[in-house]
Amino acid sequence: MPPPIEIQGLSKRFGKDVLAVDRLDLTVEEGQIFGLLGPNGAGKTTTLRMLVGLVHPNAGQARLFGARVKPGVKTLRRVGVLVEDPAFVPYLSGMKNLELFWRAGGKRMNEADLDGALEVADLGEAINRKVKTYSHGMKQRLGIAQALLGKPDLLILDEPTTGLDPQQMREMRELVRSIALRGATVLLSSHLLGEVEQVCSHAAIVNKGHVVATGTVDELIGRATTIYIEVDDVARARSVLTKVPGVRAVTDEGTGLAIDLEGIDRKEIVARLVRGGVGVETVMSRHRLEDAFLSMLGENE
Protein backbone atom coordinates (compact mmCIF):
# COMPACT_ATOMS: atom_id res chain seq x y z
CA MET A 1 0.00 0.00 0.00
CA PRO A 2 1.66 3.28 -1.06
CA PRO A 3 1.89 5.97 1.61
CA PRO A 4 -0.61 8.84 1.49
CA ILE A 5 2.17 11.33 0.78
CA GLU A 6 5.52 10.74 -0.80
CA ILE A 7 7.66 13.67 -1.88
CA GLN A 8 10.99 13.19 -3.61
CA GLY A 9 13.44 15.90 -4.53
CA LEU A 10 10.72 18.51 -4.90
CA SER A 11 11.98 21.94 -5.91
CA LYS A 12 10.28 25.18 -6.83
CA ARG A 13 11.89 28.38 -7.93
CA PHE A 14 9.97 31.62 -8.42
CA GLY A 15 11.82 33.84 -10.84
CA LYS A 16 15.60 33.74 -10.79
CA ASP A 17 16.19 34.65 -7.18
CA VAL A 18 13.63 32.88 -5.01
CA LEU A 19 14.21 29.20 -4.35
CA ALA A 20 11.10 28.45 -2.30
CA VAL A 21 11.52 24.68 -2.07
CA ASP A 22 14.87 22.97 -2.50
CA ARG A 23 15.03 19.21 -3.15
CA LEU A 24 12.55 18.42 -0.41
CA ASP A 25 11.99 14.79 0.57
CA LEU A 26 9.15 13.72 2.81
CA THR A 27 7.01 10.68 3.45
CA VAL A 28 3.83 10.67 5.49
CA GLU A 29 2.56 7.24 6.44
CA GLU A 30 -1.05 6.25 6.91
CA GLY A 31 -2.61 7.29 10.21
CA GLN A 32 0.01 9.87 11.11
CA ILE A 33 -0.73 13.41 12.18
CA PHE A 34 2.26 14.92 10.53
CA GLY A 35 3.43 18.43 11.30
CA LEU A 36 5.32 20.47 8.76
CA LEU A 37 7.07 22.91 10.99
CA GLY A 38 9.10 25.87 9.90
CA PRO A 39 9.45 29.62 10.16
CA ASN A 40 7.48 31.88 7.85
CA GLY A 41 8.95 31.71 4.37
CA ALA A 42 10.42 28.23 4.90
CA GLY A 43 8.53 26.87 1.88
CA LYS A 44 5.71 25.06 3.69
CA THR A 45 2.81 26.55 1.76
CA THR A 46 4.56 26.19 -1.59
CA THR A 47 5.19 22.54 -0.76
CA LEU A 48 1.52 22.00 0.08
CA ARG A 49 0.44 23.77 -3.10
CA MET A 50 2.65 21.50 -5.17
CA LEU A 51 1.27 18.54 -3.27
CA VAL A 52 -2.28 19.28 -4.47
CA GLY A 53 -1.42 20.36 -8.01
CA LEU A 54 -1.81 24.12 -7.62
CA VAL A 55 1.85 24.86 -8.26
CA HIS A 56 4.05 23.10 -10.80
CA PRO A 57 7.40 21.91 -9.40
CA ASN A 58 10.59 22.67 -11.29
CA ALA A 59 12.05 19.34 -10.25
CA GLY A 60 11.15 16.24 -8.29
CA GLN A 61 7.74 14.79 -7.77
CA ALA A 62 4.97 14.40 -5.25
CA ARG A 63 2.72 11.37 -4.99
CA LEU A 64 -0.64 11.03 -3.29
CA PHE A 65 -1.52 7.43 -2.52
CA GLY A 66 1.01 6.39 -5.12
CA ALA A 67 -0.35 8.59 -7.93
CA ARG A 68 1.91 11.30 -9.26
CA VAL A 69 0.39 14.69 -8.57
CA LYS A 70 -0.63 16.87 -11.47
CA PRO A 71 -3.51 19.35 -11.76
CA GLY A 72 -6.88 17.64 -11.38
CA VAL A 73 -5.41 14.18 -10.64
CA LYS A 74 -8.12 11.72 -9.61
CA THR A 75 -6.60 10.87 -6.23
CA LEU A 76 -7.52 14.40 -5.11
CA ARG A 77 -10.93 12.82 -4.47
CA ARG A 78 -9.37 11.23 -1.39
CA VAL A 79 -7.88 14.48 -0.14
CA GLY A 80 -9.40 17.33 1.84
CA VAL A 81 -7.54 20.60 1.62
CA LEU A 82 -7.36 23.89 3.47
CA VAL A 83 -4.61 25.97 1.88
CA GLU A 84 -3.77 29.25 3.58
CA ASP A 85 -6.98 31.12 4.34
CA PRO A 86 -10.34 29.54 3.75
CA ALA A 87 -12.00 31.23 0.77
CA PHE A 88 -15.61 31.31 -0.31
CA VAL A 89 -17.90 33.05 -2.75
CA PRO A 90 -18.83 35.98 -0.50
CA TYR A 91 -22.37 36.59 -1.71
CA LEU A 92 -23.44 32.97 -1.20
CA SER A 93 -24.39 31.33 2.08
CA GLY A 94 -22.11 28.86 3.83
CA MET A 95 -24.44 26.05 2.81
CA LYS A 96 -24.54 27.10 -0.83
CA ASN A 97 -20.76 27.39 -0.87
CA LEU A 98 -20.42 23.84 0.42
CA GLU A 99 -22.91 22.62 -2.15
CA LEU A 100 -21.28 24.33 -5.14
CA PHE A 101 -17.80 23.31 -4.02
CA TRP A 102 -18.91 19.70 -3.87
CA ARG A 103 -20.83 19.74 -7.13
CA ALA A 104 -17.87 21.35 -8.93
CA GLY A 105 -16.11 18.02 -8.46
CA GLY A 106 -18.82 16.34 -10.51
CA LYS A 107 -20.44 14.66 -7.52
CA ARG A 108 -24.01 14.56 -6.29
CA MET A 109 -24.84 16.03 -2.91
CA ASN A 110 -26.02 12.71 -1.52
CA GLU A 111 -22.44 11.45 -1.93
CA ALA A 112 -21.13 14.11 0.46
CA ASP A 113 -20.87 13.80 4.21
CA LEU A 114 -22.90 16.97 4.64
CA ASP A 115 -24.12 16.16 8.15
CA GLY A 116 -20.60 15.48 9.36
CA ALA A 117 -19.34 18.67 7.72
CA LEU A 118 -22.12 20.76 9.25
CA GLU A 119 -21.35 19.29 12.64
CA VAL A 120 -17.72 20.34 12.27
CA ALA A 121 -18.66 23.80 11.00
CA ASP A 122 -20.96 24.20 14.00
CA LEU A 123 -22.45 27.35 12.53
CA GLY A 124 -26.08 26.72 13.45
CA GLU A 125 -28.49 28.95 11.58
CA ALA A 126 -25.56 31.04 10.34
CA ILE A 127 -24.83 28.34 7.77
CA ASN A 128 -27.64 29.92 5.73
CA ARG A 129 -26.21 33.43 6.02
CA LYS A 130 -23.98 34.99 3.38
CA VAL A 131 -20.34 34.15 3.99
CA LYS A 132 -19.35 37.82 3.80
CA THR A 133 -21.02 38.23 7.20
CA TYR A 134 -18.85 35.52 8.83
CA SER A 135 -16.02 36.11 11.27
CA HIS A 136 -12.60 34.63 10.52
CA GLY A 137 -13.19 31.84 12.99
CA MET A 138 -16.48 30.91 11.32
CA LYS A 139 -14.83 30.88 7.91
CA GLN A 140 -12.03 28.72 9.27
CA ARG A 141 -14.51 26.16 10.60
CA LEU A 142 -16.44 26.25 7.33
CA GLY A 143 -13.15 25.72 5.49
CA ILE A 144 -12.41 22.61 7.53
CA ALA A 145 -15.98 21.43 6.99
CA GLN A 146 -15.55 21.91 3.26
CA ALA A 147 -12.34 19.89 3.33
CA LEU A 148 -14.15 17.09 5.16
CA LEU A 149 -17.15 16.87 2.81
CA GLY A 150 -15.71 13.90 0.95
CA LYS A 151 -14.69 11.99 4.09
CA PRO A 152 -11.07 12.30 2.99
CA ASP A 153 -8.42 9.70 3.70
CA LEU A 154 -5.90 12.51 3.81
CA LEU A 155 -6.46 15.97 5.21
CA ILE A 156 -4.00 18.73 4.35
CA LEU A 157 -4.23 21.80 6.57
CA ASP A 158 -2.08 24.84 6.09
CA GLU A 159 -1.75 26.94 9.24
CA PRO A 160 -5.27 26.01 10.37
CA THR A 161 -5.21 28.09 13.55
CA THR A 162 -4.02 31.34 12.01
CA GLY A 163 -6.23 34.22 13.09
CA LEU A 164 -8.11 32.21 15.72
CA ASP A 165 -8.40 33.19 19.35
CA PRO A 166 -6.98 30.82 22.02
CA GLN A 167 -10.31 29.10 22.61
CA GLN A 168 -10.84 28.56 18.89
CA MET A 169 -7.25 27.32 18.53
CA ARG A 170 -7.86 24.71 21.18
CA GLU A 171 -11.08 23.62 19.50
CA MET A 172 -9.26 23.37 16.19
CA ARG A 173 -6.56 21.17 17.69
CA GLU A 174 -9.17 18.91 19.23
CA LEU A 175 -10.92 18.76 15.90
CA VAL A 176 -7.74 17.69 14.11
CA ARG A 177 -7.15 14.98 16.69
CA SER A 178 -10.72 13.73 16.34
CA ILE A 179 -10.39 13.61 12.56
CA ALA A 180 -7.25 11.51 12.90
CA LEU A 181 -9.05 9.21 15.32
CA ARG A 182 -11.57 8.51 12.57
CA GLY A 183 -8.71 7.05 10.56
CA ALA A 184 -7.62 9.93 8.35
CA THR A 185 -4.02 10.88 7.83
CA VAL A 186 -3.37 14.55 8.55
CA LEU A 187 -0.62 16.79 7.21
CA LEU A 188 -0.58 20.04 9.10
CA SER A 189 1.75 22.91 8.40
CA SER A 190 2.45 25.40 11.11
CA HIS A 191 4.98 27.83 12.39
CA LEU A 192 3.60 27.31 15.91
CA LEU A 193 5.74 24.86 17.81
CA GLY A 194 3.23 24.29 20.56
CA GLU A 195 0.58 23.41 18.01
CA VAL A 196 2.72 20.73 16.35
CA GLU A 197 3.90 19.42 19.70
CA GLN A 198 0.37 19.12 21.04
CA VAL A 199 -1.32 17.73 17.95
CA CYS A 200 1.17 15.82 15.84
CA SER A 201 2.60 12.36 16.17
CA HIS A 202 5.33 13.05 13.62
CA ALA A 203 6.93 16.18 12.26
CA ALA A 204 9.44 17.53 9.83
CA ILE A 205 11.31 20.72 10.46
CA VAL A 206 11.62 22.71 7.28
CA ASN A 207 13.94 25.60 6.70
CA LYS A 208 14.97 27.36 3.50
CA GLY A 209 12.92 24.96 1.44
CA HIS A 210 14.25 21.65 2.64
CA VAL A 211 13.77 19.25 5.52
CA VAL A 212 16.23 19.82 8.35
CA ALA A 213 14.99 16.98 10.55
CA THR A 214 12.15 14.53 10.59
CA GLY A 215 10.82 11.87 12.91
CA THR A 216 8.34 11.42 15.70
CA VAL A 217 7.78 14.50 17.80
CA ASP A 218 9.36 12.67 20.74
CA GLU A 219 12.45 11.90 18.68
CA LEU A 220 12.76 15.51 17.64
CA ILE A 221 12.39 16.68 21.21
CA GLY A 222 15.02 14.14 22.24
CA ARG A 223 17.48 15.96 20.06
CA ALA A 224 17.05 19.07 22.16
CA THR A 225 20.35 20.33 23.53
CA THR A 226 19.03 22.04 26.64
CA ILE A 227 17.41 20.21 29.51
CA TYR A 228 15.89 21.33 32.80
CA ILE A 229 16.35 19.33 35.98
CA GLU A 230 15.00 19.55 39.49
CA VAL A 231 17.15 17.95 42.19
CA ASP A 232 17.28 17.67 45.98
CA ASP A 233 20.60 19.48 46.23
CA VAL A 234 21.18 22.20 43.66
CA ALA A 235 24.66 23.18 44.84
CA ARG A 236 25.93 19.59 44.75
CA ALA A 237 24.36 19.03 41.35
CA ARG A 238 26.05 22.13 39.94
CA SER A 239 29.35 20.91 41.35
CA VAL A 240 28.94 17.46 39.74
CA LEU A 241 27.83 18.81 36.39
CA THR A 242 30.65 21.30 35.95
CA LYS A 243 33.06 18.33 35.87
CA VAL A 244 31.12 16.39 33.22
CA PRO A 245 32.52 16.62 29.67
CA GLY A 246 29.76 17.66 27.24
CA VAL A 247 28.09 20.06 29.65
CA ARG A 248 28.57 23.49 28.17
CA ALA A 249 26.79 25.56 30.80
CA VAL A 250 24.78 25.18 33.98
CA THR A 251 22.47 28.00 35.00
CA ASP A 252 19.98 28.45 37.82
CA GLU A 253 16.42 28.51 36.60
CA GLY A 254 13.68 28.79 39.19
CA THR A 255 14.01 25.89 41.61
CA GLY A 256 16.12 23.83 39.21
CA LEU A 257 18.96 24.02 36.74
CA ALA A 258 19.09 24.50 32.98
CA ILE A 259 21.90 22.53 31.37
CA ASP A 260 23.29 23.12 27.89
CA LEU A 261 24.53 19.86 26.42
CA GLU A 262 26.89 19.07 23.60
CA GLY A 263 27.34 15.47 22.56
CA ILE A 264 26.05 13.91 25.73
CA ASP A 265 22.80 12.12 26.36
CA ARG A 266 20.39 13.21 29.08
CA LYS A 267 20.45 9.65 30.52
CA GLU A 268 24.19 10.05 31.08
CA ILE A 269 23.57 13.32 32.92
CA VAL A 270 21.09 11.64 35.25
CA ALA A 271 23.48 8.75 35.87
CA ARG A 272 26.31 11.13 36.75
CA LEU A 273 24.11 13.05 39.17
CA VAL A 274 22.93 9.89 40.90
CA ARG A 275 26.49 8.59 41.18
CA GLY A 276 27.41 11.99 42.68
CA GLY A 277 24.78 11.51 45.38
CA VAL A 278 22.21 13.90 43.94
CA GLY A 279 18.54 12.92 43.97
CA VAL A 280 16.93 13.72 40.60
CA GLU A 281 13.26 14.63 40.76
CA THR A 282 12.52 15.99 37.28
CA VAL A 283 14.23 15.91 33.88
CA MET A 284 12.67 17.59 30.87
CA SER A 285 13.58 19.46 27.76
CA ARG A 286 13.50 23.08 28.78
CA HIS A 287 11.51 24.35 25.80
CA ARG A 288 10.71 20.98 24.37
CA LEU A 289 10.12 21.19 20.63
CA GLU A 290 10.96 24.85 20.54
CA ASP A 291 14.43 24.02 21.71
CA ALA A 292 14.86 21.32 19.09
CA PHE A 293 13.47 23.62 16.46
CA LEU A 294 15.76 26.51 17.23
CA SER A 295 18.73 24.25 17.66
CA MET A 296 18.16 22.57 14.29
CA LEU A 297 17.49 25.83 12.52
CA GLY A 298 20.70 27.14 14.07
CA GLU A 299 22.64 24.18 12.72
CA ASN A 300 21.05 24.81 9.33
CA GLU A 301 22.19 28.45 9.14
Partner: peptide, 17 residues
Protein backbone atom coordinates in the same frame (compact mmCIF):
# COMPACT_ATOMS: atom_id res chain seq x y z
CA UNK B 1 -9.58 37.47 -6.25
CA UNK B 2 -11.79 35.70 -3.72
CA UNK B 3 -9.28 32.86 -3.31
CA UNK B 4 -11.87 30.31 -4.40
CA UNK B 5 -9.91 29.44 -7.55
CA UNK B 6 -7.50 27.31 -5.54
CA UNK B 7 -10.38 25.42 -3.97
CA UNK B 8 -11.92 24.79 -7.40
CA UNK B 9 -8.60 23.37 -8.52
CA UNK B 10 -7.94 21.08 -5.58
CA UNK B 11 -10.92 19.06 -6.73
CA UNK B 12 -10.27 16.28 -9.23
CA UNK B 13 -11.22 18.60 -12.07
CA UNK B 14 -9.09 19.28 -15.12
CA UNK B 15 -8.22 22.93 -15.61
CA UNK B 16 -9.45 22.81 -19.21
CA UNK B 17 -12.87 21.69 -18.03
Amino acid sequence: NWGTLRYMLVRPVKRGK
